[in-house]
């Protein structure tokens, strides 16, 4: 380790503090801006401390029906986002667990072929395959539905790969001990593999929840029905409100509200998340 010298301690702290300020300033600005009226934000200098309209702005936002946001209540959009993020997260974890289990523990023809097929899709982000995917979704009549919003985003090569790597680290003897203990494939999966993957699942949950929550392009494409809008889309629509001036106080308020669920997920699962990334259980 580096020697413990007062000057170095000071320097490292200074760098860290500057970094934190740099990262937190936009969040601070959003918080501050959401407590002012519209005029305060179009004037220079922009206020750096809270205003007096916090209550008014947020109750307006939550009560919903802002014409500037296309009339969709924030609550509704938050709900849509939550549904989308949760279905994507649970779906991805379930499917990738099962497919990794198949690839690692079962011998079937073209096993490696399937693995490489999954692996290759890693190289194609949603944006690249968006047109064919959209075509498929349209033909299946899944436009404007939660199904269309979530299912195409569920298949996940990254998570499958991650679970495969984890399963490969589990010693063969453990599988053999389970066979001698009369655990069939399903029991082994449920009683041994799943509990052992707990920390990995938690880490993935956070990453995938944020991924799902922040989806923008795909919901924008498949939903035209306002009751299915997600909160990220809502913010974007408010910014591009045509001729009118952007209502920054509402936009920032929405942004702050949209931050809350991912923050809650991170805070709740933070311990497991770090464990999942750092620890490799024996």
């Amino acid at each position: 380790m580096v020697e413990n010298r007062p000057f170095l301690t000071f320097l490292t702290h200074a760098v860290l503090i500057i970094g934190v300020i740099f990262l937190c300033f936009p969040v601070w600005m959003a918080l501050v801006a959401s407590t002012h009226g519209p005029e305060a934000l179009s004037r220079s200098p922009i206020p750096l401390w809270f205003g007096d309209r916090a209550w008014e702005n947020y109750s307006q936002l939550l009560a919903g029906g802002l014409p500037e946001a296309g009339g969709v209540p924030i609550g509704r959009m938050m709900f849509n986002s939550a549904i989308m993020a949760l279905v994507i997260t649970f779906g991805k974890i379930a499917i990738s667990l099962i497919s990794a289990y198949a690839i690692v523990y079962f011998r079937f023809p073209f096993r490696m072929g399937f693995f490489w097929m999954i692996f290759i899709t890693l190289m194609l982000p949603v944006e690249v395959r968006i047109l064919p995917t959209f075509d498929v979704v349209t033909k299946l009549g899944m436009l404007n539905s939660y199904v269309g919003l979530t299912i195409p985003l569920i298949a996940s090569a990254t998570a499958t790969f991650l679970f495969r790597q984890f399963f490969l680290t589990i010693p063969d003897e453990l599988v053999e001990a389970a066979r001698i203990d009369r655990a069939g494939p399903l029991r082994f999966f449920w009683d041994i593999l799943l509990p052992m993957s707990r920390t990995n699942i938690a880490a993935l949950f956070i990453i995938l929840f944020i991924f799902g929550w922040n989806q923008y392009l795909w919901p924008l494409l498949v939903t035209t029905d306002e009751s299915l809008y997600t909160v990220v889309m809502g913010i974007q629509r408010m910014v591009n409100a045509g001729e009118a001036l952007p209502v920054w106080h509402y936009i920032m308020g929405t942004a702050v509200l949209a931050l809350i669920p991912p923050v809650l997920v991170v805070v709740a699962m933070q311990k497991l998340f770090v464990k999942g990334l750092v620890e490799s259980e024996k």
């Binding site: 010693p171 001698i180 009369r182 052992m196 707990r198 259980e281």
Partner: peptide, 21 residues
Amino acid sequence: REPGDRNIAMVFQNYALYPHM
């Protein structure tokens, strides 16, 4: 016969205990 149906028990070199139990 499957290992579970042979009425045997085995002790492994690396113990092979279920770590979460």
